[in-house]
């Protein structure tokens, strides 16, 4: 199972993520988003912050979670790669996310992801213990 794949969209970019649990699904979606921003192989997970988000349902939670991570990247300069979901319910998510500040010498920023949109957002259990999520980003 691939953790995520990129969907073609005329102006923007879509992402499909997979996971055996919802926790893995949310972590893989985050990983997919950061892989759009930068090549992650040179990113080390030595700085950790806690992230908490609320939502109306899993879809809302997913969009809000990804936008919160984008904020950490753009405002605080963190490239994130490790996502440990500590608590996840329909309306609440708490995670410890790790990465490191952007270092121009070692990291290349490939593109700006302006935001994660609600367009065609999906979080679904496609088989027992197989979850699939889909989002589109404004690039």
């Amino acid at each position: 199972m691939k953790p995520f794949e990129i969907l073609d969209h005329t102006a923007d970019v879509g992402l499909v993520a997979w996971g055996e649990t919802l926790e893995a699904l949310f972590a893989n979606a985050a990983m997919g988003m950061f892989s759009l921003i930068s090549e992650l192989k040179n990113v080390e997970c030595h700085t950790t912050v806690t992230v908490e988000v609320k939502g109306n349902d899993y879809e809302d939670l997913l969009v809000t979670w990804l936008n919160e991570l984008l904020y950490l990247f753009e405002a605080e300069g963190y490239l994130l790669k490790c996502f440990e979901i500590e608590e996840l319910g329909q309306y609440y998510l708490r995670a410890r996310v790790s990465g490191e500040p952007v270092d121009q010498e070692r990291h290349t920023i490939q593109r700006v992801v302006k935001a994660c949109t609600y367009y065609e957002v999906k979080v679904e259990e496609v088989h027992p213990q197989l979850f699939r999520a889909q989002v589109y980003f404004d690039i």
Binding site: T10, A11, Y118, E120, D138
Partner: peptide, 9 residues
Amino acid sequence: IHWGYGFPI
């Protein structure tokens, strides 16, 4: 016009 999210571009 092209495919956007929500509104078309």
